[in-house]
């Protein structure tokens, strides 16, 4: 075993992979990428965790990891799903939160309590905190739908979980 999380070149390649549904952030930014190990024979073992049990992006992420690492010259790539410890939006990096906001998706607050109450979600378009939730379930499992009362624009909010 040569490298593990944070060190090796396989980690760097995997960590740069964009999320298929939110391409401005990487799977490492989101905390989906948990571990990468590679051995001297060029075999890579990647561990990822889903944001939600039914997240349909997991298959695409797996395919992307295998394709990207294979193209980088690794001989074999296997991808393992782990559920524990359960993914939380608290694993999202500060950089990822800033990138999401710039992309028009309000980043999550701290994941506290069973259904975290976002007291004020700032509109990613105009910066106003005069916003309201229009639907707790949005275009993907991880997002809710909000409307800004100041600029009248609807926007996505990454739900704290």
């Amino acid at each position: 075993m040569r490298d593990s999380a944070g060190g090796g070149s396989a980690w760097k390649i995997a960590a740069d992979l964009p999320d298929p549904e939110l391409p401005v952030v990487t799977i490492a930014d989101l905390g989906i990428l948990r571990d990468v190990t590679e051995d001297d024979q060029g075999r890579v073992h990647v561990t990822i965790t889903p944001t939600y049990s039914g997240c349909p992006a997991m298959q695409t992420i797996t395919d992307d990891l295998v394709a990207t690492l294979t193209a980088a010259g690794y001989q074999s790539v296997d991808v393992e799903y782990v559920l524990s410890p359960a993914w939380t939006t608290d694993w999202m990096t500060e950089e990822a939160r800033a990138k999401l906001a710039a992309y028009g998706v309000a980043p999550p607050g701290p994941a506290s309590g069973p259904v975290p109450l976002a007291l004020s979600v700032r509109c990613p378009q105009c910066g106003s905190s005069d916003t309201r939730e229009s639907s707790r379930f949005g275009s993907t499992a991880c997002k809710s739908l909000w409307v800004c009362r100041s600029c009248r624009e609807p926007f996505d909010h990454f739900k704290a979980i």
Binding site: S53, P56, S135, F137
Partner: peptide
């Protein structure tokens, strides 16, 4: 429309749980 999304998302969570 919002309810369409909500019930579909709830079903998707349940499906993910069912698969595991």
């Amino acid at each position: 429309l919002e309810e369409d999304l909500a019930l579909a998302n709830i079903g998707l969570d349940q499906l993910g749980q069912a698969r595991a």
